[in-house]
Design a binder for these strands. Structure first.
Length: 155
DNA sequence: GCCAACGTTGGC
DNA sequence: GCCAACGTTGGC
């Protein structure tokens, strides 16, 4: 099983929104970046786990864990002209954007702040921490995954 | 709200 | 296919 990190703005859709969804499950719609799409479309499998990262907020950091419960399928918001994620270049016949479904697994007792992640030597190579990184979905290595779980356990 | 870094667009 | 202009992301 692979590991991932999903970014979201908590004002838009935070981990508490996911908890309050039916079955604590939601489609991860609105991704409009090819690299992030490719991760979802080509590499994610049911059973993969991912960190839920809160971005663009007071204390950016990892809020908890989710699990992939449905592998990729076309993102319907791309075909919805009323959606802010509407993309006229995407069609039903040739969908351009894909999404997966994620299910809530766990919320950390406290968020693990970005600043704390940066201080962990084991996470030096983590994609999230690369200068200028903006990718909303990134792979997480097993080593990084375990290091972060250990941090969460020690809060 | 600023702004640096990045991805995308579109003219040529 | 190059690259300047533009829009977006996201930490601070």
């Amino acid at each position: 099983m692979k590991h991932w990190l999903f970014k979201s703005e908590p004002d838009e859709f935070g981990i508490d929104h996911l908890i309050n969804r039916p079955k604590q499950t939601s489609g991860w719609d609105g991704v409009r970046n090819y690299q992030a799409r490719n991760f979802m479309r080509d590499s994610m499998q049911i059973g993969d786990t991912a960190f839920f990262y809160h971005s663009n907020c007071k204390i950016p950091g990892i809020a908890g864990i989710v699990e992939i419960v449905k592998s990729s399928y076309p993102d319907p918001t791309a075909c919805d002209s009323k959606s802010k994620y509407y993309d006229p270049k995407s069609t039903h016949i040739a969908p351009r954007w894909f999404m997966v479904d994620v299910k809530f697994v766990k919320k950390f007792t406290q968020i693990i702040p970005l600043t704390v992640l940066r201080d962990n030597a084991k996470l030096q190579d983590m994609l999230l921490l690369r200068p200028g990184n903006r990718l909303s979905i990134t792979p997480v290595s097993t080593k990084e995954w375990q290091a972060i779980l250990a941090m969460a356990a020690n809060i």
